[in-house]
Design a protein around this nucleic acid. Structure first.
Lengths: 223, 223
DNA sequence: ATGCTAAGTTATCAACTGATAAATAAGGAG
DNA sequence: CTCCTTATTTATCAGTTGATAACTTAGCAT
């Protein structure tokens, strides 16, 4: 037997909108953006036309889902933490990546992120630019300071240096993809992954970065 | 004006099937698996019902797309290359990742891979297990040999060691995601990414691995 | 209590979409 | 050249899907 078609409780406009948006995030994260409005409505416990009393079109609802997911979870404090030289770099990076992954390592966030990336949403590209500017570039600068290399004012950040930061970022992020997007049961706990990636970044990438800078200086001197 | 509705040339059953499958790969890679059969047919230049003369259902066609993408691009020689100790490890890994990325770094492959992962396709999970067994585990073993650490027969591969290999793999793979899935114009050429990742893996992960093994041996001795 | 505002539902449309059946035509075999 | 096999098309169905309009009802204000 089906459950008796029950009338949804009456909520204030703001409450209902919030409720719909929240459910829409986990719904589209699961089904992708081709998920159907009727199924979403059923999950929320309201009728399908009600959605259109709050969002003019499905595309508008999806747009709001993007905003909610991307904007509401970003913490400006991350950047301050990365550049806080009262803490040693290793601890800073471990602490930052712990906080960062606490914010984005959820099934909803990771899957919405991948779906929006696949759909070529501009917001995705903007997010990546934001990550480069506010997280990776500062990390590169801190790494230079740690290794007593020239400031980025003196010697601009090299593309390859950014890629080295991307390397660590990728190692951690792809762990999240395997776990939350692919749904694989990765045995190693996240804390160890972060520690390892930070260690590898400091030991390996530090050396590579130094070499890179030396080479660049040589080339400049040779001109 | 629309082009005159032209009749498709008559092909042999095998040729047409191959043609449909090839187009289906790039079509579904672009649109995702919710892409419509009519649009696919239009792109191929045949009528939509013709697809059903070759594939019983849309789901069957998608299944064939998976097989084609995942199975046809795997080269058993990769493993032989990784374990070929007549070449030094650094060159071996660079050569391997060059070949591997030549095989999978296409818009079609990367996007089909992500879509199938998001849809929880078992083939995706199987592929990852295959990568771990035939690529990453051998890399870990070679790294141990390089660093003159105990063989995996003596001391089994630690989960964290596998994760260190995943780290390098992720750095390279995520470059592909950024480029071919997100469509970002990454400035640094792939060759440099591979060189850097391999260098980082050998310098950083080598040290971390050694430490890990030492700790494990200590713990074993302490028991 | 009465009535008005706004939240929610019912009914329904038009376009879409996977799939099937019957009709058509290309091209090799004899 | 004719026939026959089969690749391809035309026509169409039934279920789906985003969206709209009209109707109903909850609950606060007076």
């Amino acid at each position: 037997m089906d459950a008796a078609p029950q009338r949804a409780g009456r909520l204030s406009r703001a409450e209902r909108e919030r409720h719909i948006l929240q459910e829409a995030i986990s719904f589209f994260a699961e089904r992708g953006f081709s998920g159907q409005t009727r199924e979403l409505a059923k999950r929320i416990g309201v009728t399908q036309p009600l959605l259109y009393r709050y969002f003019p079109t499905k595309a508008d609802l999806i747009e709001r889902v993007y905003e909610e997911v991307y904007l509401s979870r970003w913490d400006p404090g991350w950047r301050d933490l990365i550049t806080d030289r009262s803490i040693n770099l290793r601890d800073r990076l471990i602490r930052f990546y712990t906080l960062y992954t606490e914010a984005i390592f959820t099934r909803d966030w990771m899957r919405i992120y991948m779906f929006s990336g696949l759909h070529g949403q501009p917001i995705n590209e903007r997010y990546i630019a934001h990550v480069e500017e506010h997280l990776l570039a500062p990390i590169v600068a801190e790494m230079r300071a740690e290794k007593r290399l020239p400031d980025t004012d003196v010697l601009p950040m090299q593309p390859l240096e950014l890629e080295i930061a991307w390397n660590a970022q990728s190692g951690i992020f792809y762990y999240g993809i395997r776990r939350y997007v692919y749904g694989i049961d990765v045995k190693t706990p996240l804390a160890e992954i972060i520690e390892t990636n930070v260690a590898v970044m400091l030991e390996g990438a530090g050396a590579v970065a130094r070499r890179l800078i030396d080479e660049t200086v040589d080339e400049t001197a040779a001109d």
